[in-house]
Amino acid sequence: MGREDEWARMEEAWEAGQFIVLAGEAGVGKSRLARDFAASKGEVLHLEGRPGDALVPYTTTARNLRRIFARTPELRLEPWMRASLAWLLPELRAEAGSPAAPDPSLHAAIQYVFQVGLAGVGSFVYDDLHLADAASIEAGFVLISSSFPLGQPGACRT
Rank of each mutant, 00 (worst) to 15 (best):
S40A: 15
G42N: 06
V44H: 03
L45Q: 05
H46L: 15
E48P: 00
R50N: 00
R50E: 10
D53F: 09
A54L: 02
A54H: 05
A54F: 02
A54K: 04
L55A: 15
V56R: 13
P57F: 15
A62M: 11
N64P: 01
R67Q: 07
I68W: 03
F69E: 01
F69Y: 03
T72D: 12
T72P: 00
P73S: 10
E74W: 14
R76S: 14
L77W: 10
P79N: 07
P79H: 06
M81V: 10
R82M: 13
A83I: 06
S84D: 03
A86L: 06
L89T: 02
L89P: 01
P90S: 06
P90M: 11
E91C: 09
L92R: 06
L92H: 08
A94N: 08
A96V: 05
G97N: 07
G97A: 10
S98M: 14
P99K: 07
A101L: 13
A101Y: 15
P102W: 13
P104M: 11
P104W: 12
S105I: 03
L106V: 05
L106I: 06
H107A: 12
A108Y: 05
A108C: 06
A109V: 08
A109I: 06
V113A: 02
F114I: 07
Q115S: 13
G117V: 09
L118H: 02
G120K: 01
V121E: 01
V121L: 03
G122H: 08
S123D: 01
V125F: 14
Y126E: 00
